[in-house]
């Protein structure tokens, strides 16, 4: 799997944090504008896959710190749970709930179950893509 390219390896080191930051930006931007959990998750997964290509599987697993299946599971739980709060207000499943409050330094903040769902999707995409990629990469060796 290792491509033994100095350029790729150096670039991978710098690109990983940048791409991860960009993926979070996409995730949060999806609130009102184009973006969202799916595309953000793909970018984050692509960042780690790039790292996997430039280094090797062990270091990719190390940089991920947790098993991708844990990421997948957490994401799925978050996504399903985000459907539930509406029910307690007597509304159907998946009805979005909003909480607005003002915090010092940040100004007005809007939180919603939609955001939880998006974070869930983000984690599911990262988890499933990396599970597949790491399985394939390990089968190659």
């Amino acid at each position: 799997m290792n491509m033994h390219s100095l350029i790729l390896r150096t670039a991978g080191h710098f690109l990983l944090p940048l791409l991860l930051l960009f993926s979070v930006f996409l995730l949060l931007r999806g609130h009102d504008e184009p973006g969202g959990g799916f595309i953000g998750g793909l970018v984050a997964a692509a960042a780690i896959v790039l790292y996997l290509f430039s280094m090797d599987i062990q270091s990719a697993r190390k940089v991920l710190r947790v098993d991708p299946r844990d990421v997948l599971g957490t994401g799925m739980v978050l996504a399903v749970i985000s459907a539930i709060p509406g029910v307690f207000r007597g509304q159907p499943f998946f009805t979005a709930q909003w909480w607005e409050f003002t915090a010092p330094l940040f100004g007005e903040i809007k939180l919603s179950t939609v955001l939880i769902f998006d974070i869930g999707v983000y984690l599911v995409v990262i988890g499933s893509v990396l599970t597949i990629m790491l399985t394939l990469a390990e089968a190659e060796e």
């Binding site: 597949i132 399985t135 394939l136 089968a139």
Partner: peptide, 20 residues
């Protein structure tokens, strides 16, 4: 497209293993 992506990712893994 997203669904097709998921299903085809699976199909690729499947033909890889089937080939093995």
């Amino acid at each position: 497209i997203v669904i097709g992506f998921g299903v085809l990712a699976f199909a690729v893994v499947l033909i890889h293993r089937a080939y093995e």
